[in-house]
Amino acid sequence: MSLISPACRDALQAWIDHGRAIQGQAEATLTAYRADVVEFLSFMTAHRGEPQGLGALEAVTTAEMRAWMAGLRGDGVGARSLARKLSAVKAFYRWLASREGFEPTAVLSVRPPKFQRKLPRPLAEDAARDVLDTVALQARDGWVAARDVAVVTLLYGCGLRISEALGLKGRDAPLPDVLRIVGKGDKERLVPVLPAARDAVQNYLALCPHPKEADAPLFRGVRGGPLRANAIQSAMAKTRLQLGLPSSATPHALRHSFATHLLAAGGDLRAIQELLGHASLSTTQAYTAVDTARLMEVYARTHPKA
């Protein structure tokens, strides 16, 4: 940050503090935002030959924004990453313009590069059921098998992120009808718990050799410590190999499957957004594209004139 003027450095820190305190953004998100804006401010310093104060930032032109983006592309930054960096800079400018009282049109009018958004890759319903049946076969110890079944059932049955499932504490069991989950950005949401998920967790607890403690992780590793995500990832890798599923059949794919199968069954998009804990509906709308893509595949494969 030595290339950045004290005024810009202070403004950036104030913006980060605002995101943390007022908007409740996750630390990982704030760290990425900071890095992206520092990169932009450093470019402006080098581009103009001296550290830029707030007044100079207000005078940034569209041509300078394009020069910054062209420089990143020249350094091998992909379109997706560049769009993310531009989004961070725009967010900083919106906040700065509101605080300082200037018009940020030159920055906000710059369009991000086009790129093909990756669609979620859920499992088919029968494949998801096969995963739940087969993951138990990957462990030698019965309690470990029950543990892994309980975790993947929470991922598919409740749409949890793996970090959210592994973040459950002993006090959360037996699982209630509705589980309060703290997700990304410390955002809370209420998730209904299916009887199958509740039963799977209870079966695991009945077999687990480690005592349940209120403040300890609900899911334990073999030696009694917190269960790590890579243990579930390994179990899923063995399961997909046994079932002949693609490499995209990961623990997170079970969360995708939860959303896609709900949508296919007539679930409301807004309700699914709440269940997943998405901040933006546009994120959840990706699942409608998946459903449409699958419909077109069926059409192309089965229509007599296709």
Rank of each mutant, 00 (worst) to 15 (best):
L3I: 08
I4W: 10
I4H: 08
C8Q: 05
L12D: 10
L12Y: 07
W15V: 01
A21L: 02
A21P: 05
Q23S: 04
Q25F: 12
T29A: 14
L30W: 04
T31P: 06
F40Q: 04
S42E: 13
E50S: 12
P51H: 01
P51K: 04
L54E: 05
L57C: 13
T61Y: 03
E64C: 00
R73P: 00
V77K: 11
A79K: 14
A79G: 09
R80C: 06
L86C: 08
S87T: 00
S87V: 02
K90S: 09
Y93R: 02
Y93S: 08
W95E: 05
L96H: 03
P104K: 05
P104S: 07
L108I: 00
P112D: 13
F115V: 06
Q116D: 15
R117E: 14
R121T: 00
R121S: 14
P122T: 09
L123E: 00
E125F: 10
D126I: 02
D126G: 09
A127E: 11
A127Q: 10
D130I: 10
V131T: 04
D133T: 02
V135F: 03
A136I: 01
A136H: 08
L137F: 04
R140A: 13
R140V: 06
D141E: 15
V144N: 13
A145Q: 06
A145L: 00
V152Y: 15
L154W: 05
G157R: 07
G157E: 11
L160F: 04
R161A: 01
I162P: 15
G167D: 01
L168T: 07
L168E: 03
K169Y: 10
K169I: 01
D172Q: 03
P174Q: 13
R180S: 15
G185C: 06
G185M: 02
E188Q: 14
L190N: 15
V191H: 06
V191L: 11
L194N: 07
P195W: 09
A196Q: 14
A196Y: 09
A197P: 06
D199E: 14
A200W: 02
N203Q: 15
C208H: 08
A216C: 10
G225S: 11
L227E: 13
Q233E: 15
K238P: 05
L241H: 13
Q242H: 12
L245D: 03
A249N: 00
A249E: 05
T250R: 03
A253R: 01
S257C: 08
A259T: 03
A264S: 12
G266F: 02
G267Q: 02
G267S: 05
I272L: 15
L275N: 12
L276V: 03
H278S: 07
A279D: 07
S282N: 12
T292L: 14
R294V: 06
L295S: 02
V298I: 11
A306E: 10
